[in-house]
Design a protein around this nucleic acid. Structure first.
Lengths: 204, 204
DNA sequence: GTGCGCTTGTGAAACGAATCACGATGCCCA
DNA sequence: TGGGCATCGTGATTCGTTTCACAAGCGCAC
């Protein structure tokens, strides 16, 4: 499945879920308008799911959701860990969208001994030693990194050593990782700078 | 300038700044390795800056930083507002990277009356009425949206009305905006779901 | 039942971006 | 001062993605 398609599937899922139960069926055209993409593109993307829409009618909304979730590997909940419980880590810990999206935060971890034991959204912050044990015990494969930039690489190395295979990195640092590990970088400064470019060229 | 290039420029800037002052000069090859892209790609990207590297030597690191910042429109600081001071908004307000990246948070705003006046990182949370005034007074063009999903569209409409031209949206909602307004969406669930896909296909 | 309108699925074409390959060029050192 | 090495800049090529265009198919109305 093309990379570009994979990155749009969650978008479709979000659109379908946001539509509410009023519509039992969706056409590629309607979905395309909501998602802001071309309708042929939607159809081609969905064709990778082996999905069968009905000509003259469209796609069954609920069935399509199921197929999207299956394609994205969301049939079971993934256990995830959050490392670095600063402001951002706490914010993510409180995020209510994990469960409906298919994820289950099993623990929060921080290197700062003074934080350990503090309650955050029903969890108690745990130590880095426990992190390694928890990863192995629960067979965790996905981690969210919200440490300061300086600590990110060191923590990432540890995560990789413990068996983590996917990292969502919010730390403003580029991680050096083995290519068996998949990483996605989310960087506030980068996003703003991209907007800045378009803002600046707009006036020029 | 190609969209793909624009989205890499902040990455290059980050790499160059992270290199420290030890290196006065950088080759496309070195930069490419750090950034994780092809060196010909780096050269082509940098050639859009009108940058002149020196054959046999490379690029002057500091000069390149200046040119990148100029290309991205970061010569002056952009005033930005943050709307929605929940966990995530507070986290962003405390983010130390705004200033070095070229941005200046001029205010935090929330619809909840009980929050107004609360101090967050040297700011006091202000009301939505003040938001509109501040935008016009300071000629703010960029906004960061960290409200709950349900409020996002309404707030976005107001921002657009007040003159905002670029929105960085952390709310898990797709905004309907006039195409004069540029928006970038950052969505935790989406990112995790993309990772989930690769995680799932890895084992399959 | 038959025809018409809507919508899918998909080959073909167009587009944009990444990579390759190499000529051009400046620096360093003998 | 000249030769060799390192590196840039960029045309040509390849690759991946998007868009177009249309035949095929389904359902509904009459």
């Amino acid at each position: 499945m093309p990379k570009a398609t994979v990155e749009r599937l969650p978008l479709y899922l979000q659109c379908l879920q946001a539509m509410g139960d009023s519509e039992t069926t969706v056409s590629s055209d309607v979905l395309a308008n909501i998602a802001g993409v071309n309708s042929a593109n939607v159809r081609k993307d969905l064709s990778y799911l082996g999905s069968h829409g009905v000509r003259g009618v469209g796609y069954d909304r609920l069935e399509l959701c199921v197929q999207l979730r299956r394609a994205l590997g969301l049939t079971d909940k993934w256990p995830v860990v959050i490392i670095g419980v600063g402001n951002l880590g706490s914010a993510l810990a409180n995020y209510q969208g994990f469960d409906p999206s298919g994820f289950n935060v099993i623990g929060l971890y921080d290197a700062d001994p003074s934080k350990i034991g503090d309650p955050v959204d029903g969890h108690r912050i745990k130590s880095m030693e426990e992190l390694e044990l928890d990863i192995k015990e629960h067979d965790v494969q996905m981690a969210i990194l919200t440490t300061p930039a300086g600590a990110a690489q060191e923590v990432a190395d540890m995560l990789v050593g413990a068996g983590i295979l996917s990292i969502l990195n919010f730390a403003p640092a580029l991680l050096k990782l083995p290519d068996t590990v998949k990483c996605r970088q989310v960087d506030l400064a980068t996003e703003l700078q991209i907007l800045s470019y378009y803002q600046a060229t707009r006036t020029a």
